[in-house]
Amino acid sequence: MSHDCSQPTGPDGIYPFDARGVAKRFRHAAIFGALDSLNPGEVMRFCNDHDPLPLLNQIGQFFGDRVKVAYVSRQPGQVIIDFLVAA
């Protein structure tokens, strides 16, 4: 499955976030801010060039069960993760 993270995914409550275009020093703050702004039931589709395991750990510690993680793609150079905000 191929996905272009630069393209909007439509009005279905999925919001794209391409981390590759955010300066590294601001990435985690931008990601946490984006997740914090989502409403229950909304999804942030996160794209990155590597598997962000330390970030996922931080998200789990900060948000707990409020944010669910589901990999869409784990291809080298293009990792896509859906973050679902639970109700």
Rank of each mutant, 00 (worst) to 15 (best):
M1K: 07
M1H: 08
H3L: 14
H3R: 13
D4I: 06
C5G: 13
C5E: 11
Q7W: 05
Q7V: 14
P8L: 06
P8V: 04
P8C: 02
T9D: 12
T9N: 08
G10C: 08
G10W: 06
D12S: 08
D12L: 09
D12N: 09
G13E: 04
G13R: 06
G13D: 05
G13I: 03
Y15Q: 10
F17A: 01
F17M: 11
D18W: 01
R20W: 00
R20A: 06
G21A: 15
G21S: 13
V22W: 13
V22H: 11
V22N: 12
A23M: 07
R25W: 15
R25G: 14
F26K: 15
F26V: 12
F26L: 15
H28I: 15
H28M: 15
H28R: 14
H28S: 14
A29E: 12
A30N: 15
I31N: 03
F32H: 12
F32S: 10
A34G: 11
A34I: 00
L35H: 06
D36W: 02
D36H: 11
L38K: 07
N39L: 12
P40A: 11
G41S: 10
E42G: 04
E42V: 05
E42H: 12
V43K: 00
M44N: 03
R45W: 09
F46T: 03
F46N: 05
C47N: 10
C47W: 10
C47K: 07
D49Q: 09
H50M: 06
L53Q: 14
L53H: 12
L53R: 14
L55N: 02
L56E: 00
N57I: 08
Q58P: 01
Q58E: 13
I59P: 02
I59D: 04
I59N: 03
G60S: 14
G60C: 13
F63E: 03
F63Q: 02
G64K: 08
G64L: 05
D65I: 00
D65Q: 10
D65P: 11
D65G: 03
D65M: 01
V67Q: 06
V67P: 04
K68F: 00
K68R: 14
K68S: 12
V69D: 04
V69W: 00
Y71T: 02
Y71M: 02
V72L: 12
V72K: 10
S73M: 10
S73R: 12
R74K: 14
R74G: 05
Q75Y: 05
P76G: 10
P76W: 08
P76M: 09
P76Y: 10
Q78N: 14
I80K: 03
I80M: 06
I81H: 01
I81C: 02
D82L: 03
D82F: 02
D82I: 01
F83S: 02
F83T: 08
L84P: 04
L84G: 05
V85N: 01
A86Y: 04
A86I: 08
A87Q: 15
A87P: 15
